[in-house]
Measured scan of single mutants.
Amino acid sequence: MAEQVALSRTQVCGILREELFQGDAFHQSDTHIFIIMGASGDLAKKKIYPTIWWLFRDGLLPENTFIVGYARSRLTVADIRKQSEPFFKATPEEKLKLEDFFARNSYVAGQYDDAASYQRLNSHMNALHLGSQANRLFYLALPPTVYEAVTKNIHESCMSQIGWNRIIVEKPFGRDLQSSDRLSNHISSLFREDQIYRIDHYLGKEMVQNLMVLRFANRIFGPIWNRDNIACVILTFKEPFGTEGRGGYFDEFGIIRDVMQNHLLQMLCLVAMEKPASTNSDDVRDEKVKVLKCISEVQANNVVLGQYVGNPDGEGEATKGYLDDPTVPRGSTTATFAAVVLYVENERWDGVPFILRCGKALNERKAEVRLQFHDVAGDIFHQQCKRNELVIRVQPNEAVYTKMMTKKPGMFFNPEESELDLTYGNRYKNVKLPDAYERLILDVFCGSQMHFVRSDELREAWRIFTPLLHQIELEKPKPIPYIYGSRGPTEADELMKRVGFQYEGTYKWVNP
């Protein structure tokens, strides 16, 4: 592979701008107003304001973009700056750019259920340069409990009458099928589907988006991507930290609602779906819905739930269990780990287990898709061969690698495990991989909904998990304890083995 010439960040961002501006969906010269509902909250200060700053800094926003914060707290732009700027990672050389960014910011205080507050917000936006005809993007960085009041008031008082209007809704989209349907029906009564952007930030990850290209742009994968060759698929999300004093919020939802029903299920769809007619948003989402419709409700015998306990040999936070978090209700049975087996009941995947695993306070930070292939028929190497695996590593250190057998150097035919490896950090030294939120917010500006969740996708996802969630809430089974920093409950490994996964433990990928 030829040595790549190092590029400056300015040059890299210039390439990104060229890609972005050559499309006809990006209205570079139009006025846009980006409204952050819930501007005083954690999500706004840690993710949304920093993301908008990065896009502005790199010249990736339309030229005439204004940012308006809205929340109940009586704040000023200076207050917003004070709480969000520490997350910007701005350099001293960017000081003038930073001043320009905050000059485009404003803030309006108001209630979430008060019509007069929204009329005041609308008047404020109209007073901005060309504000009355601007395109408006409303980001709901809010708890779902206020979605209905907020969307109703936005629709009645704050819509642009000339430009387009788009609304970005953060997960969780309800707690179960019934609450999700209620919320979807409410929002759909106010906005068209092409105006609604239900954001799952995992769909903005580079390697998640790469799944489609790997599958449908490489001839070698087509013939082997089926039940005849693939023994099982494992989708993993692991965090090495616990709730760390923020367990009160987590306890309301648990690990299945927080990660599995959305992030992991979306990745499953991209692995299992048929080739779409095109890369058009609805063509892709149509195929994802077909996959979900082929999955039956989760069966309790295919589920393992766990909850982390303190590690007596650990240090600091590792010595504390979930129930030691003062914000967690006493005696909570909320799971911090889950392993679930699903089956896609169609011709391509009949009988292939899709194993979804996620948890907190585990032994490493990792998100990946792992396809394990069947054993080689007619073994001539005296059971020395391990199964081939194709691994798409989402985070950290984005990579695609194939675990395969090669001859060990020497005189004899002794096979050993090795890999074919594409590590993004080595291959793409001159490429700026956008943060997931950067990519998705740019998608909203461009009107691309491919990486957002459609209402029928959402409904099918909740259909699969709601009976299990209701059973857990009714019966309150005690989750299996696992030690902070471990791989999780051993019962999860036993479940995976029972459905056909072979864990060798003899080879570990190392970032080159």
Rank of each mutant, 00 (worst) to 15 (best):
L177Y: 07
G59I: 01
P223F: 01
Q161A: 12
Q11G: 07
S132T: 12
Y147P: 06
D30I: 06
G41V: 02
L20C: 15
Y49H: 01
L75F: 07
S189L: 09
I168W: 01
F138M: 01
H27Y: 09
R182L: 11
D100P: 02
T10V: 07
S184T: 13
Q11F: 06
G110N: 03
D58Q: 08
K82C: 07
G204D: 15
L121Q: 06
Q11S: 07
C13L: 06
V169R: 00
P86V: 10
F88N: 01
I234P: 02
H32V: 13
A25K: 07
A134H: 05
Y70H: 04
P92I: 11
G69Y: 00
T51Y: 12
C158N: 04
Q195H: 06
A217F: 00
D30P: 03
Y70Q: 02
T65F: 10
D24L: 10
Y249D: 14
V108L: 05
R166P: 01
Y249L: 14
S123C: 04
I33H: 05
F173A: 09
L121F: 05
P223A: 14
P172D: 05
N153G: 13
A39R: 01
G110V: 00
C13Y: 10
P86G: 07
I167P: 00
S117G: 11
G247Y: 14
S132W: 11
I80G: 02
K95G: 08
T243C: 14
Q209G: 13
V146Y: 05
L183S: 12
F216S: 10
N153W: 07
F88V: 03
K89H: 05
R175A: 12
I255S: 09
A127C: 12
D194T: 07
E244P: 07
K205I: 15
N185R: 07
R175F: 06
I196C: 03
I33K: 01
D113T: 11
R182G: 11
Y139K: 00
R166K: 04
V208D: 11
G247F: 10
K46A: 10
G59H: 06
I35K: 01
R246T: 15
Q11L: 06
V208K: 01
Q22S: 11
I234G: 07
P62Y: 02
D194G: 05
T65K: 00
R257G: 14
L142R: 01
I80S: 02
R246G: 04
Y70L: 06
S8N: 13
N126M: 14
K152G: 06
D114P: 02
I80H: 02
E252F: 03
V68F: 03
M159C: 10
R17L: 06
N64C: 06
F56G: 02
L142V: 08
V233F: 02
N229P: 02
I196V: 12
L20K: 08
C13Q: 08
L20N: 07
L96S: 14
F56E: 01
G110P: 00
A217E: 05
N229Y: 04
Q111I: 07
N185H: 09
R72C: 11
D79K: 03
T236P: 02
E252H: 10
N210A: 03
N122L: 02
T65D: 01
D194S: 09
F191G: 01
Y202T: 13
I67Y: 03
V77C: 09
S117R: 04
F88I: 09
F138V: 02
F173W: 11
L203M: 15
R120C: 10
G242M: 10
L183I: 09
G41N: 12
N210P: 02
V150Q: 00
P172N: 06
G174N: 05
V150Y: 00
G59R: 05
I196K: 00
H124K: 08
V169K: 02
G247E: 08
Q83H: 06
E244T: 06
F253I: 12
D251M: 01
K45A: 12
S73I: 03
F66L: 05
G247H: 09
G204C: 15
F66P: 03
F87E: 05
I224L: 11
F250N: 04
H129F: 09
L98R: 02
K89V: 07
Y249V: 15
T31N: 09
Q133K: 12
G41C: 11
L55R: 00
E3C: 10
Q133W: 04
F66C: 07
I15Y: 05
I224S: 12
N185V: 06
L55E: 00
L190F: 12
A149W: 12
M37F: 12
A103S: 14
A2M: 13
I80V: 06
A103T: 09
A44L: 02
D30N: 15
A127T: 06
L96G: 08
F216Q: 08
P92H: 11
F26Y: 14
Q161W: 09
I256T: 04
K152R: 14
L7R: 07
S188C: 13
S40I: 06
L190P: 02
D113P: 03
D100V: 05
P223G: 15
N226A: 06
S179N: 08
F56D: 02
N218H: 01
H124A: 10
G248K: 14
E18M: 07
Q83D: 10
F88R: 01
E85D: 06
T91H: 10
R17M: 09
V213Y: 04
P86I: 09
D42T: 14
I36C: 03
K89S: 11
W54R: 09
E18G: 11
T236A: 04
R215S: 01
P144C: 05
L183D: 07
T31V: 11
L96M: 13
D181L: 11
W53T: 00
F221Q: 02
E63R: 13
G23F: 15
K89T: 09
A71S: 11
A44W: 04
R227W: 03
K171W: 06
R72N: 10
V213R: 06
D114R: 09
R17I: 08
R74C: 10
M207N: 11
I36Q: 00
K45G: 04
F88S: 02
L121A: 01
N64Q: 08
R198Y: 03
E19Q: 08
V5Y: 07
S73G: 08
P223S: 15
F191M: 05
W54C: 09
L130R: 08
D79R: 04
N153T: 03
L60Y: 08
D228I: 09
L130S: 11
F34M: 08
I67A: 01
A109P: 08
D113S: 08
E206A: 11
E156M: 12
A103F: 05
A231T: 10
L75N: 04
G242R: 03
R219S: 08
E170S: 09
S180R: 05
E206R: 04
E99W: 02
L61Y: 00
R227V: 04
F21Y: 05
G69C: 03
S184K: 03
N210L: 02
S40A: 11
Q178Y: 13
A71K: 00
Q11H: 07
E170A: 11
R74Q: 11
K89A: 13
A134R: 10
R9I: 04
R166E: 00
G174K: 02
K82P: 02
A78E: 11
F237Y: 14
K95L: 12
L235K: 01
P240C: 12
H32Y: 15
L190C: 08
Q195F: 01
R120A: 07
D200A: 10
D79C: 05
L16D: 09
G38S: 03
G131D: 08
Y70F: 14
S106G: 03
F191H: 00
G222W: 11
L96Q: 13
L211D: 01
S160F: 01
F241S: 14
R198W: 02
S132P: 13
Q111R: 08
G254F: 02
Q209P: 06
Y70V: 09
R182S: 03
K152E: 08
D251G: 07
S179H: 10
Y249Q: 12
Y202N: 15
A6L: 06
G248P: 14
L75D: 05
N226C: 10
N153H: 11
E239G: 02
